[in-house]
Simulated assay, not measured.
Amino acid sequence: MNQLIAVVRQLRHPETGCPWDLQQTPTSLIPYILEEAYEVVHALQQEQPAAIAEELGDLLLQVVLQSQLAAEADQFTIADVAQRITEKLIRRHPHVFGTVELTTAEDVRDQWEHIKASEKGEEASLPLSQKLHRYARTLPPLIAGIKIGERASRSGLDWPTISGAWEKFYEELAEFQEALLKGEPSQQAAELGDLLFSVINLARWCQLDPVQALQQTYQRFIQRLELIEAAIDRPLEDYSLAELDALWQQAKQQLEGASEAEQPEEPPIEQR
């Protein structure tokens, strides 16, 4: 760790450092923080330890680099960053480092939110709408939708059964279709947002991660396209829609067959 900090410090040396690194600012590095975070997620999903370690290193570099920029501006150091998160973890886990007794993950989550609110000077009775504003401001839209749905549900703003979530989905789908026919862009966008939020809530009821599901869909789309491009001898634009559809179905079947082949054989009944 010390070596990494020293390397980053050298990269930022005003006389002998790297020209690219010397040009960076805290805001110019924001895209790299996001990119590296998603690279970590991808490596974790692939369950490849070597890739995970590498991508975590790339993300750690962004932490060290931001801390170096802050140290140069006499704001804080990497030691301050480590000390603050250590203190926060101890402070927000009194059931581990103190005398509080908690037994469920839900209790821990509620306690975390209560302590967090106290630290930020927020009243326990802060309106739910103000709490949800934080998610909408600071998180990517899809993740914000998940958090908002979960938090609203814990406050009683939810259907008693999943049938309510399904009814809401079909209601929003019909309203979106109607808005498309009227041709009013602002209303169309509003109804599309409502429809997407209803899908996110359905995923919550089904205990599915919509972010992961969408990422897997992107990956399948790209894999099918790769198979098509490997099988054709002309640009995609030279093929008719019917031809492309046939190639698409063929690629889909090929991938599904490969996926089934990778599944372990089911043991005989007497061995189950």
Rank of each mutant, 00 (worst) to 15 (best):
I228G: 01
V211E: 07
Q215L: 04
A231T: 08
Y218S: 14
D209L: 05
Y218F: 13
C206G: 07
I228L: 01
Q216A: 09
L208R: 15
A213E: 07
V211C: 11
A203F: 08
Q212A: 14
R220E: 10
A203E: 06
I200F: 03
L208N: 09
R224A: 11
Q219V: 11
Y218H: 15
A230N: 06
P210H: 01
R204Y: 01
L227R: 14
D209N: 12
L208Q: 15
Q212T: 08
A230Q: 13
T217K: 15
W205L: 07
I200K: 10
A231F: 01
R224G: 10
W205S: 04
A231K: 11
L202D: 04
C206L: 13
Y218W: 07
P210L: 01
Q207N: 13
L202H: 09
W205P: 05
T217F: 12
A230H: 08
Q223A: 10
D209C: 09
A230M: 03
A203S: 13
Q215M: 01
V211W: 09
Q216P: 00
R220D: 08
N201D: 14
E229Y: 02
E229H: 08
L214I: 05
E226D: 13
Q219A: 15
L208I: 11
R204S: 05
A230S: 11
N201C: 12
Q207K: 15
L225I: 08
R204I: 05
I228P: 03
I222H: 14
